[in-house]
Amino acid sequence: MKETLRIKGMSCGHCVKAVEKALSEVSGVEKVQVDLGSGTATVDSSGPLDMAEVRRKIEKAGYELV
């Protein structure tokens, strides 16, 4: 499954890496691609994402899921 998430608070390459790392820790996530310009992350997963877990990981990294 592919899902695009809006992430608020990213401003640099370090932010991209932090969000990629946080999302890659979510169970079922196989691939993460973050686009700093659009403020989005595209996630490929083996099944439906647990959005509560996604939100926790993003917030723990210091960003906001919009």
Results as ranks from 00 to 15, higher is better:
M1S: 13
K2V: 02
E3I: 00
T4V: 03
T4E: 04
L5A: 04
L5Q: 03
L5K: 03
L5F: 01
R6P: 03
R6E: 02
R6F: 04
I7V: 05
I7E: 07
K8Y: 05
G9P: 12
G9D: 07
M10N: 14
M10V: 01
S11W: 07
S11Y: 05
S11C: 12
G13P: 15
G13T: 02
G13E: 03
H14W: 07
H14D: 05
H14S: 14
H14Q: 12
V16A: 08
K17Y: 06
K17F: 09
K17I: 03
A18P: 15
A18H: 13
A18Y: 06
A18I: 10
V19Y: 06
V19S: 11
E20L: 03
E20I: 02
E20V: 02
A22G: 07
A22K: 12
A22N: 13
A22D: 12
L23N: 08
L23I: 04
S24P: 10
V26Y: 04
S27V: 11
S27M: 12
S27L: 10
G28T: 07
E30S: 09
E30C: 06
K31T: 06
K31Q: 15
V32F: 02
Q33F: 08
Q33H: 07
Q33V: 06
Q33K: 14
V34D: 05
V34S: 12
V34A: 08
D35S: 10
D35G: 06
D35K: 06
D35F: 00
D35L: 11
L36S: 08
L36C: 03
G37W: 07
S38C: 07
G39I: 01
G39F: 00
T40W: 00
T40S: 04
T40E: 01
A41M: 09
T42M: 03
T42I: 04
T42W: 00
S45R: 10
S46M: 09
G47C: 07
P48K: 13
L49M: 12
L49D: 03
D50N: 13
D50V: 05
D50Y: 07
D50R: 02
M51G: 04
A52Q: 14
E53H: 00
E53W: 03
V54H: 01
R55Y: 03
R55M: 03
K57F: 01
I58V: 14
E59M: 02
K60A: 13
A61E: 13
A61V: 09
G62E: 05
G62W: 05
G62D: 05
Y63G: 00
E64Q: 13
V66E: 08
